[in-house]
Design a protein around this nucleic acid. Structure first.
Length: 729
DNA sequence: GACGGAATCGTTTTT
DNA sequence: CGATTCCGTC
């Protein structure tokens, strides 16, 4: 066995981790230190050198993307099929697989379906309405959060402590929600994990079986695990001391959604024989960037302790640009990108990272007018689109007649004469009989009680679904999908909707048929007896697909700091680095949140390979109001030796630590907003130089001068009295 | 049941 | 400011 490819590409620390004896291990892997490589090679080492059966390995990640990447790299590292039998996937995906296999033990129907958070919210809204509660006092969003937070901590409605009528009502809603999901065969994301944990815990045979099978458990991004995920890992590995986790406490940025950074500390006491390995050599960034990031993160307390280093050269200093306002910031960034592209670099190697999605717009506008292709990450994904969810709801109802959420969604979409009053009657009966909407509709049709017209409409709907189910039974999956979107009248419905929008929706529906075909081709139908349709529907919920269609084009990348985690770019812009925005106002209220914001900043900085540019604006229009803002404290926490502050086009270079003394240099434009009739950041037109934006202003009366950044003519100082500027509206 | 005006709200995101 | 959602009208 030639083990060179397994071992050779590793440094000492990585090799220690990969070849560690089989005991538990905690690998603290800094940004860009090769953590995925360690996991992949560890798996390779276990299979190829230690000759362990792939069957006994369980590898867990947080996102489907990470799972796919790991599997791909494992497969290309080893001979074909060496990894067959290994379980690799997300916490949710693995829990789902378990529940499909053991639905009876988990007390679920074998047709159970996965509820995504949109479905979940609709369901909660329905419960509030049906209980005739005040939606302003019990906002569905907040209730959703309440339910999920409890589930993430492993608490059922019955376990929740109540205090006062408000919380009693909340608990009651939680209880009702649990019952409704159980009756409809619906499982939300948190439920997948909780149900899996409870089933394992309460079924000794299954627990034994899985403990014996998965002798080697590996976890990626361990700092992001929540209470229940860690409990699940502990349950599976208890007494076996075989848990190998990789993570970075400095990159924990999901505390607000339940991730427990403390799990890293608990791990150390729960697995006292563990081995601790630090990966501190960074292969990504220049020394300047790395040192600056180290200095920033050193301001956090309670770290595990870790300092990244590199063999790389110092590189360029970090550029700091203090913009006058958000417009100026966008101009500056886009100009730098133009320059970057002109130097022969790839657009896709430049990324603009911001704290909140709302910040993307200005950059988009500027990029559009500069004719630079870009791609914004985030937003609606394929399986989250309304028309797709509606088509899927038909399929879900076909798969499981008692899926109330789907019933509600499609019963009158497209409209087929089943109005609010009919549905009120249907819900009434369902509530009284504690049965599904489907059964209650059948009762209503049989026993009457509604106008003949309403009954006919309901009957027609029942028949539509039943006929479908019969016809679909013997059909390949993609034909079932095609049939549903045609027969349900969805295509006709969207055709009526009109030009642009309707056409895209119909295209999407057709794409759904393709997605189904592709799913049939690729999905290995596991030994477990699952219907292909059930699997496809779960797949749609668990993997919502990409947000944007794949662009082959070379594009500038725009995304939030959160979604940048795990990625890297040659040139990174960290924009909006201002107090109140980053760190956000709300982060200052709760303890611990500021440190998480700092980690977020650290994550952002360490995305950069070659060049890092940090921008902040002295004034910013936010929610229609003008705000004056100070530079972010994070900026001040970076030693000035790594920074180079610039004004327009690098004219002035000042040490950034002098922020406190800036006022003198600033005064001449601080009150410059109104004296000339022009505003900083305003677009103006000049007869000779064309359009530009006002950057600075000084002096008054006849001596008043403004600095303007012209789109084509560059930056110029002009005397207002002679410039003859006109405002561009 | 479609359309339009008013009201509301405004980190971060995956599963 | 701008997007989304909600409610009332035709």
């Amino acid at each position: 066995m030639d083990i060179t490819p397994l071992i050779d590409p590793l440094n000492d620390a990585q090799r220690t981790a990969v070849t560690a004896p089989f005991q538990s291990a905690l690998v603290l892997a800094g940004a860009g230190s090769g953590k995925t490589r360690v996991l992949v090679h560890r798996i390779g080492w276990m299979i190829q050198v230690e000759n362990l059966p792939a069957y006994s390995i369980l590898a867990v990640t947080f996102t489907n993307k990470a799972a796919r990447e790991m599997l791909g790299r494992v497969e290309s590292l080893m001979q074909q099929d060496a990894s067959a039998g290994m379980w690799i996937g997300t916490f949710h995906g693995l829990a789902h697989r378990f529940l499909r296999r053991h639905s009876a033990a988990a007390n679920l129907p074998d047709t159970f379906q996965v509820l995504d958070s949109d479905d979940q919210q609709r369901l909660i809204k329905r419960i509030i309405r049906s209980a005739e509660l005040d939606e302003t006092r019990y906002p569905p969003k907040q209730i959703q959060w309440y339910i999920n937070a409890h589930k993430d901590e492993g608490r059922r409605a019955a376990h929740v402590q109540t205090d006062g009528t408000f919380w009693e009502t909340m608990q009651q809603i939680y209880k009702t929600y649990e019952d409704l999901c159980q009756r409809s065969g619906l499982v939300d994301f948190a439920e997948l994990l909780l149900r899996c944990l409870e089933t394992l815990r309460d079924t000794p045979e299954l627990l034994d079986q899985y403990r014996n099978r998965f002798r080697y458990v590996l976890v990626d991004e361990f700092q992001d695990t929540n209470t229940i995920q860690y409990a699940w890992l502990k349950l599976l590995t208890q007494g076996q001391n075989n848990l190998f986790v990789v993570g970075d406490d400095d990159q924990s940025i999901y505390g607000w959604r339940g991730a427990r950074i403390e799990n890293i500390h608990s791990f150390q006491s729960d697995y006292p024989d563990h081995r601790l390995i630090r990966l501190e050599q960074n292969y990504r960034s220049t020394a300047n960037i790395l040192n600056a990031a180290n200095a920033l993160i050193a301001n956090n307390e309670n770290r595990m302790g870790k300092e990244l280093w590199t063999d790389d050269k110092d590189g360029d200093p970090i550029t700091v640009y203090d913009a006058f306002n958000e417009q100026d910031e966008a101009y500056f960034v886009v100009n730098r990108i133009k320059q970057w592209v002109a130097e022969g670099n790839l657009r896709e190697q430049a990324a603009i990272l911001y704290r909140s999605n709302a910040q993307s717009r200005l950059f988009e506008e500027r990029l559009v007018s500069a004719a630079i292709p870009y791609r914004v990450y985030g937003g609606l994904r394929f399986f989250e689109r309304a028309e797709i969810k509606t088509a899927l709801a038909y399929l879900r109802l076909i798969a499981n007649r008692h899926d109330d959420a789907s019933f509600e969604r499609v019963v009158n979409l497209p409209t087929r004469g089943i109005g609010a009053r009919s549905m009120d009657a249907v819900r009434e009966i369902a509530k009284a009989q504690k049965c599904s909407l489907w059964d209650s509709t059948r009762m209503l049709c049989r026993d009457g009680g509604l106008s003949a017209r309403a009954v006919n409409a309901l009957k027609a709907f029942l028949e539509l679904i039943e006929n479908h189910a019969i016809a679909a039974d013997s059909m390949p999956l993609h034909d079932q999908v095609r049939l549903v979107i045609e027969k349900s009248g969805l295509i006709a419905h969207y055709q009526k909707e009109g030009q642009e929008k309707g056409a895209t929706r119909i295209d999407n529906l057709k794409e759904l048929v393709n997605a189904a075909r592709q799913f049939s081709n690729e999905a290995e139908i596991d030994a477990e007896n699952m219907k292909e349709l059930d699997l496809f529907l779960s797949h749609a919920a668990l993997e919502a697909g990409d947000a944007q269609g794949d662009t082959d084009e070379d594009c500038v990348q725009l995304m939030t700091l959160h979604s940048a985690k795990g990625l890297e770019f040659d040139l990174v812009f960290l924009v909006g680095m201002e107090e109140g925005l980053f760190p956000g106002q709300k982060s200052l209220e709760e303890i611990g949140r500021l440190e998480e914001e700092r980690r977020l900043c650290y994550v952002g900085m360490t995305r950069a390979r070659q060049q890092l540019v940090i921008c902040h604006a002295e004034s910013r229009r936010l929610y229609g109001r003008e705000h004056r803002s100070e530079a972010s404290r994070f900026l001040r926490e970076i030693p000035s030796q790594y920074l180079q502050e610039i004004r327009m086009q690098g004219q002035v270079s000042r040490p950034v630590t002098a922020y406190g003394n800036h006022d003198k240099t600033k005064t001449n434009r601080d009150n410059g907003d109104s004296t000339s009739g022009f505003m900083l950041g305003q677009q103006v037109n000049h007869s000779k130089f064309g359009t530009g934006i006002i950057l600075q202003q000084e002096g008054d009366g006849n001596h008043a001068r403004v600095q303007i950044n012209f789109e084509s003519a560059g930056t110029k100082w002009l005397v207002l009295a002679y410039a003859n500027l006109t405002a561009v509206s």
